[in-house]
């Protein structure tokens, strides 16, 4: 039984991805595109050369972190839809430190990243406190906090940090994660050192959850609040902590954009989408650190590959959004996958 469960853990995401791609192909076929040509172009756009690889890895960094944020909260039984907002305040905080602080790179970069993490943690802890103190469901509050973050960060940029072009100034070079070296080995993609930060964060999440008392308590609360309470675990404290740590990951995801990809922050008309993609990444990765990294690789790859798919096969990039949505559906309805597996297994026996 244990063995079978383990197998299912890998099979559900795998089958979901295949079903998602399959239905995506059917949608293309129905709307008059060439699915085979499109998917070939898509995968060439991910693997066909070091430039594409560089772009995919660059895209992965914030996705890993936003995925970790969602997964971490999930482990404590909390659904953090507020990654998007925590990411925005983190982005702003990192850019603020990047512009207004003077320090050598060895201090400046960690300081800016920590500022992003702290801002995200602060933003994430608000729904945590509301949940712990007033029993308000975190899904609603985090959604509301997203919009508050979007409008507030825009207002702060507009009033205090505005540069021509609806954005802030560029950050100082000493805070930048940009890497001429990484760019030169990837045919001048926009790859930066952020991926290292993201991977370190993945290790930290794994260590926190599985190798510390805090992690044990957080997971216990996720499994059963009442039992944890009875065992002497402070449930309220753990809920706030979990949201704060989750928010910190999300805030650091924002610093990937601020210190790495863009080097500044724009006035955003709408959400970046990275935070919402984090939900997909965490679900696909079964809320484990390694799963999140793999999930981010897949979705980051799909997003970058979509550009090539559009230019070669003429299929709008949005198809990838549809495929990702379908994958989430199938993972969420793992019931179908279980049912299919049972059918196949039974068929094999008879």
């Amino acid at each position: 039984m244990q063995n079978k469960n383990n197998k299912m853990k890998y099979l559900v995401p795998l089958i979901s991805v295949l079903l998602g791609l399959l239905i995506g192909g059917i949608i293309m076929l129905v709307s008059g595109y060439q699915p085979v040509e499109a998917y070939v172009a898509l995968f060439q756009g991910i693997f066909g050369g070091s430039y594409y690889a560089g772009e995919t890895i660059r895209q992965m960094s914030p996705l890993i972190l936003s995925g970790l944020a969602v997964a971490f909260a999930f482990r404590t039984g909390l659904f953090n839809i507020g990654v998007e907002g925590q990411l925005l305040v983190g982005w702003l905080a990192s850019v603020y430190v990047g512009i207004f602080v003077d320090a050598p790179a060895i201090i400046h970069i960690p300081l800016a990243i920590l500022a992003a993490g702290a801002a995200g943690a602060l933003w994430g802890s608000v729904p945590g406190i509301l949940k712990a103190r007033f029993k308000v469901h975190e899904v609603i509050t985090t959604i509301m906090m997203n919009y508050i973050a979007l409008y507030s960060t825009n207002e702060i940029i507009r009033n205090f940090m505005l540069a021509p072009g609806e954005r802030t100034e560029n950050i100082k070079e000493s805070a930048s994660l940009a890497s001429p070296f990484l760019q030169s080995i990837t045919e001048y993609s926009t790859l930066h050192y952020g991926i290292i930060v993201a991977l370190i964060a993945a290790v930290i999440m794994w260590f926190l959850l599985w190798r510390t008392t805090l992690g044990y308590e957080l997971r216990a609360v996720g499994f059963n609040q009442h039992a944890s309470q009875y065992a002497g675990i402070n449930v309220s404290k753990n809920i706030v902590l979990s949201m704060a740590i989750s928010g910190a990951f999300a805030g650091i995801a924002g610093s990937m954009e601020g210190l790495g990809t863009y080097q500044y922050m724009t006035i955003n008309a709408a959400f970046t989408g990275v935070g919402f993609d984090g939900i997909a990444v965490a679900l696909l990765g079964a809320n484990s650190a390694i799963g999140v990294v793999l999930g981010a690789a897949l979705f980051g790859g799909l997003k970058i590959g979509a550009l090539n798919m559009q230019s070669i096969a003429g299929v709008p990039t949005e198809l990838v959004g549809v495929v990702i949505a379908l994958i989430i559906f199938f993972v969420a309805c793992s019931y179908i996958v279980h049912w299919l597996m049972n059918r196949v297994n039974k068929g094999g026996k008879i």
Binding site: F79, F276, I279, A280, A325, I328, F329, A332
Partner: peptide, 11 residues
């Protein structure tokens, strides 16, 4: 239900 709703938004 929340995950399914999120998927609806994406889709």
């Amino acid at each position: 239900q929340v995950v399914s709703g999120v998927a609806i938004n994406f889709l």
